Computed example of a mutant assay.
Amino acid sequence: MRKAHRLKRRFYCAKGPNNIWHLDGYDKFKPFGFCIHGAVDGFSRKVIWLEVSDTNNDPKLIAIYYLDALKRIKKTPRILRCDAGTENSVVCLLQQFFRNEATDHFAGSRSVIVGRSTSNQRIERWWGTLRQQGIQWWINFFKDLRDSGRFNELDQIHCENLKFCFMNLTQTHLDRIAQQWNVHEIRPQHNSDAHYGKPDIMYFLPETFGAFDYGTVVDKRDVTCCKDMYSVPKRKFDKFSELAYLPPSSKVEWLNNFAISLEKSYLEEKECIVIGDFNYDILKHDNCSKSWLDLMQSVNFSQLVESPTRPDLQMPVDADSALNLFLELNDLVANSYED
Rank of each mutant, 00 (worst) to 15 (best):
Q189I: 04
R176T: 15
E160D: 12
R146G: 03
G134F: 01
I186V: 10
K163E: 08
W137I: 06
Q136P: 06
R187Y: 14
Q179K: 12
L145C: 10
K198R: 12
P188V: 14
F164V: 11
R150W: 03
D144R: 09
F141I: 07
N191I: 11
N161K: 04
N161S: 13
G149A: 10
N191Q: 15
H173A: 15
G134P: 03
I135P: 01
R150Q: 10
L169V: 15
E160W: 10
V183C: 05
L162E: 02
Y196L: 06
W181L: 00
S192T: 07
F142P: 01
H184W: 11
F164N: 10
W181F: 07
D147N: 03
F151M: 14
F164W: 13
H184Y: 14
N161C: 11
E153F: 06
P188R: 14
N152Y: 01
W138A: 09
W181N: 00
Q132I: 05
Q156A: 10
D144E: 14
N191K: 10
Q171C: 07
N140I: 09
Q189C: 07
N140V: 11
T172I: 02
F151T: 12
R150G: 02
L154N: 04
L169T: 14
Q179T: 13
D147C: 00
I139P: 01
H184V: 05
E185K: 10
L174P: 05
E160V: 04
W181S: 02
V183M: 01
A194N: 06
D147A: 02
R150T: 04
Q156K: 13
L162T: 01
E185R: 13
W181C: 02
V183P: 00
T170L: 13
R150E: 08
M167I: 06
H173K: 04
D155H: 08
E185F: 15
Y196F: 14
D175A: 10
F142C: 02
H173F: 13
I135M: 14
F151K: 01
C165V: 05
Q133R: 13
N191S: 14
H158K: 05
N182D: 12
